[in-house]
Amino acid sequence: MQFPSLSPSDSALDSVLSVQDLRKSFGSNEVLKGINLNVKEGEVIAMIGASGSGKSTLLRCINRLETPTSGEIRYRNQPVSNDNVTKLRREIGMVFQRFHLFPHLTVLQNLTLAPLKVLHKTQTEMHTRAMELLERVQLAEKANAFPGELSGGQQQRVAIARALALSPSVLLFDEPTSALDPELVGEVLGVMRDLASEGRTMIVATHEMGFAREAAHRVIFLHAGQIHEEGTPSQVLENPQQPRTREFLARVLNR
């Protein structure tokens, strides 16, 4: 699939998600300096950039775990605000770097809690659905384990399944493999590749250039709070135009 890059004003209407002139400051430190981004249905965006470039902050502003200082975020043309964000978060799932599973609940309960309490699904309905999701991340046998009994990779797969349990349209991944031991990264990326190939809309902040190259439709390079360069994976990763992008890629690829 190829997504021609359009100007924001043209594409905002048929975007699932659009970000317009988003700014975020922490005190006097401006972390996001005017971000514009449109995400199409089924699009997979890999967001790369050095630590502190604003990747996390951008994702957290999208589902309003951080309140933007200025600018607008629209989900299916509807402005995301503090008033409707609780509802919209069912549509915009998030996977965290450090999993944040609920340690007092079993794996199965981790998956069913939000659908039961937020969507008011029935216990039996959710049990079946949760077991399906656990099958998909190949952790069905761990349904009754507690998160503390799982490896990091298993925990992150559970966290992905948990996000999927609400059937969101968009999934945000905040460096999902950065907290994992290297040998556990593959199993998580495998699950994410499957999701990408199913046509799920995803924004993935990542340092995994392999994933960006193979699974993403578009790669965004964030530098100092701005989108410094964007394009198809081959454009950005193999033929970067900006010196900053080349510098960054040289650093991560040669490590």
């Binding site: 589902n63 775990l65 978060r89 998030m94 965290f96 809690l113 937020v118 948990r162 609400l166």
Partner: peptide, 16 residues
């Protein structure tokens, strides 16, 4: 604090 964020990200309100 990640626990509260994860719960919010799953669409739960403060009470829930």
């Amino acid at each position: 604090s990640g626990q509260m964020e994860a719960a919010k990200a799953l669409g739960m309100d403060y009470r829930t």
